[in-house]
Structures are given as C-alpha cells and as structure tokens.
Simulated assay, not measured.
Amino acid sequence: MNTDSPLFPPLLRGEAVKPGVDPFAKAISRAVAGVDSGSIFYSEAIDCLKAALVLAPEGNLTEAMQAVYVAQIGLAESLGALAPPEVPIHFVWPDRIKVNGALCGRVRFAAETTEADSNPNWLVIGIDVPFLNTRTEPGATPDQTTLHDEGCGEVTPMALLESWSKHTLLWLTYYINSGFERVHNEWRPRCDTLGHDTEYPLSGTLVGLDEDGHMLMRQGGMTQTLSLIDYAEPA
C-alpha cells in the first residue's frame, strides 16, 4: 500500500478506494449518485495503477466520447514524461495501451446512456496499467508487458496518477477551447494500428477517425464506421 497521497491539479480531486474495490465501478456508482465532475477514484496498490475520472459532458454522447481520446493522450504524455525517453507509447483502438510494442493495460469508459444523440449526465473514463508482473513467468506472454519489464522501475503508480490527472486536465482545456481537431491531430500518430490490417476489435484495416471521433474500418471493398459507444462498458 502506498501511503503517499497523490496531488491533483485544480478542478480535480481524488479519493482512494478500499483494497479490493474496483475504482472504475466505484466511480460509476458515485457518478450515478451525483458526485462532482472532476472526481478521481483510485487504488493504492503498488503493482498496478487503476483509476477512474468522472466527467459531466455538456453535449451528446457522441461528443462526450471524444474525451476518451483526451484521456488517452494524457496517459501517453504522462508515461512519456516519466518513462525512459526510448520507451514508445502507443494505442490500439479503441481501448488498449502499448508500451514498447507490447500490450500494457487498457482504457475503460462508460456513460449514463448508450444513445448517441442523448446528453449523458456523466461519463467515466478509467485507466488500468500494470506495473509488476504478478501472474506469469517473465517472457511467457511476449505480446503483453508491464512498466517494470520495460525499464520503468522508477515510476510509481501514484506518480503516474498525478501526471495523468495533470496532462488530462490540460488536454481537456485544449479540447474545450479548440475542439476535437487538435485532439485528433495529437492522437492519430500514437495509434500504431492505423493503416494496417488488424484483428482487434474486428478484422479489417483501420483507416482513421472522422470528425466525430468514429473509427473508419475498411473490410474488403467496404468501409464501415465504428463508434466508441459500442465498446463502452455497461453502466
């Protein structure tokens, strides 16, 4: 257990959950109860970072889901600031994180509604990043990694949580002031599956995001639109 309480920037506030409690589930339950936007719920475990941020979107669900990309950029910039400079950070759309070419955690999200045109009262975005391998022998899962295995042994979960909150708030400000285009331009080069064949989340070629944040996937001669809404977790 980490006894050092993380420091959060203005407009955000944190609350540690009890051991064994999922911060993402806690954030959803508190969001339903009307907790303030900007609340972050987090675990104090030392082998991983599990945290979830509650937001109160002003637009419809399609617009609200664009904040997921904001949180991903915040995480990438946080890891970039704390990890050794040679460690690359990328995404796999819609929710996976890659460190040094291997999967290293995920982003989670859920909203009050699943209707694209409805205005949700709350949106919860969570991150789950493994720091230590506590389940398998080293090298047993070469497509998966941890921060410790990638040379980030000096990084702690609470340091990453602090950094994520600051970078995410900064990019939320950019998003509010400049719209989705700036977020899109920053996010796109960090998604290493764009322009390539992939089996996740479906088989096809990811072409890129449209102006609403939907992913365009080419399958044969057809292109279909994929929405983050379809990959949100049940509320």
Rank of each mutant, 00 (worst) to 15 (best):
N2T: 08
T3E: 11
S5L: 13
P6D: 09
F8T: 01
P9M: 01
P9C: 02
L12G: 01
L12C: 05
R13H: 09
E15M: 03
E15D: 05
G20C: 00
G20Y: 06
P23K: 12
P23Y: 07
A25I: 12
A27E: 05
S29A: 12
A31G: 14
A31K: 13
G34F: 01
V35C: 00
S37A: 04
G38H: 06
G38L: 08
S39E: 06
I40R: 13
F41K: 06
I46Q: 15
L49N: 13
K50C: 09
L53F: 09
A56E: 12
E58F: 06
N60W: 10
L61R: 13
T62N: 03
E63L: 04
M65I: 00
M65P: 04
A67V: 02
Q72E: 14
L75N: 10
A76I: 09
A76Q: 10
L79R: 14
G80C: 09
A81L: 04
L82W: 08
A83D: 05
P84Y: 06
P84T: 06
P84S: 11
P88I: 08
P94V: 15
C104L: 14
C104E: 14
F109V: 08
F109W: 08
A111D: 11
T113G: 02
T114Y: 11
D117N: 08
S118M: 03
S118D: 11
S118N: 02
N121W: 01
W122P: 03
L123Y: 00
G126L: 04
G126V: 01
I127Q: 12
P130D: 05
R135L: 14
T136M: 12
D143A: 13
Q144W: 14
L147E: 15
H148A: 12
G151S: 12
G153L: 00
P157A: 01
L160G: 05
E162R: 08
S163N: 13
W164Q: 06
W164T: 07
K166T: 15
W171K: 05
Y175Q: 03
I176V: 15
I176P: 00
S178N: 13
F180W: 14
F180D: 03
E181C: 03
V183H: 02
H184M: 04
H184K: 11
H184S: 09
N185S: 10
N185C: 03
W187G: 02
R188Y: 10
D192Y: 08
T193D: 07
T193S: 07
G195Y: 09
H196P: 00
D197W: 14
Y200D: 07
P201C: 07
S203L: 04
T205R: 15
V207M: 07
G208E: 06
L209C: 04
L209W: 14
D210I: 10
D212V: 00
H214P: 09
M217G: 00
M217H: 05
T223H: 05
T223Q: 08
L226P: 00
D230L: 02
D230I: 01
D230F: 02
Y231I: 00
A232Y: 13
E233Q: 03
P234G: 12
P234E: 12
A235C: 08
